[in-house]
Amino acid sequence: MNKISIIAVCLGALVFSACSDIKRTPGKAYMPDMQFSRAVETYSDPRELQAEGINYNARPVAGTISRSADVIYQHLADTTGRYITSSSLRNPLPYLDTLQTVEAERLYLINCGICHGTKLDGNGPLYKGGDGPYAAKPATLVGDPLYEAMSEGTMFYSITYGRNLMGSYATHLTPKQRWEVVHYIKAKQREAKGEATPATAPADATAPATDSTATAAK
């Protein structure tokens, strides 16, 4: 009888150990010195460096800017509110061709579409006509005169620094991508109003003031 009880206990232990199928630990590594990097990798813990006496600060050196980010620093003080001084800024990129439009649309759908809607009607899946979790109505980019009159520069600054409840998208989109998205929104607004996209590039301030983006900027 004694042996039977030993067998029973063993079997019971096996059953119990096989019970939970949630794996909360990663398991054992074969040759951990080849598995885990000794060099500092992207998600290395900076405290380990500090413990070894290495000074590490994740912030960029004060005063340095990214090579592509120069345009943001034209109106350095204009980082909150309505971005009035930046409204004079013009989109430095030429109008988008078909391929670039596809790319700009992709960027818009990833980053903006969840709130502002795939049709730019301010009714994305997060708002869902007031039924979604997002309580504030996102801006109606096409169909609201307020946003159709908004200048490209103000749009760019709104994307860069955020506006009202919208956060900054500086970490999501490079300045070039932000200008592309601004181009895309403006093109959609023109399309809805039945205007054609001007053929010439609006590249600099000497461009004729008759094109539609210039009038929108005022």
């Binding site: 909360r24 630990t25 990663p26 590594a29 074969y30």
Partner: peptide, 27 residues
């Protein structure tokens, strides 16, 4: 050894991908 299929650690915040990427369709 060194493989961790089905590894499902407990995170500091219960962040549900089902709610964010599923229900709310965030890319």
């Amino acid at each position: 050894l060194g493989r961790s299929k089905d590894y499902q650690p407990e995170q500091p915040i219960y962040y549900s991908h089902k709610v964010h990427a599923g229900t709310n369709q965030i890319n």
